[in-house]
Amino acid sequence: MSTGELRIRTPEGITFAYQLAGPVTRCLAWTIDMTVVLVACLIISTSLGAVGAISVDLSQAIVALAFFVVPVGYGIVFEWFWRGQTVGKMVLRLRVMDADGLRLQFHQVLMRNIVRFADLLPGFYLVGGVASLLSRKAQRLGDLAAGTIVVHHRKPAEPDLEQLLGTKFNSLRAHPHLCGRLRQRTSPDEARLALQALMRRDEFEPAARVQLFTEMAAHFRTLAHFPPDVLEALPDEQFIRNVVDVLFRTNAAA
């Protein structure tokens, strides 16, 4: 059964992870791709009027070939030239990758698209769906044969903490020994939680936002006991902002 994540450990001892795409997302991508294939076939069959004027036989031959080549070749051509993506995968931000994290090779693209015929059996991707549900890497038979996986592909932007924390005055920094105690007593998970709460603060409902920062501020106040006059002047959200500043910018000026 898939765990939703494929972790790869490099020879340098560094681990990175791919988020595996589930059957439902892949099914949606496939539906989009099938729509594209259908539209392409219809366009080809209706736009052959000019060829039909020259040779009806030739135009019918092209249509007969197109209805075979387009569905089979669509995945092969797009996944090769778009580096693991088709239109459906691009819309849903999925990408075919080598299962070992290496470069995708042409024979892998060809293989996973050819073996699709077995995945489609006995209908509606039943074999492929069951295989991907049972597979640790969420692989259908084609992926297994080709040594590929399908992952969520979101190109992360370079982080910009400066924009979040800014260079505002931080009254907590007037007490360096308490800042040191706060850093010492805060676990990495607590620090991450506080930072995430700040980065996503605009996504919360107003009441939930107030409640969240109230609870977080109450927790962080227990880790380091800053003087009451410092705390009284600080709303809960601003307190958390200052805490994050202390935790993540150890060398900033007071």
Binding site: P156, A157, R192, F248
Partner: peptide
């Protein structure tokens, strides 16, 4: 040392691509 998920995701993406 940091537990900062956005930065970690960004670096994982870079390392994964370079690893390939």
């Amino acid at each position: 040392f940091a537990s900062e998920p956005e930065l970690r995701r960004y670096l994982e993406s870079l390392v994964a691509r370079a690893y390939a």
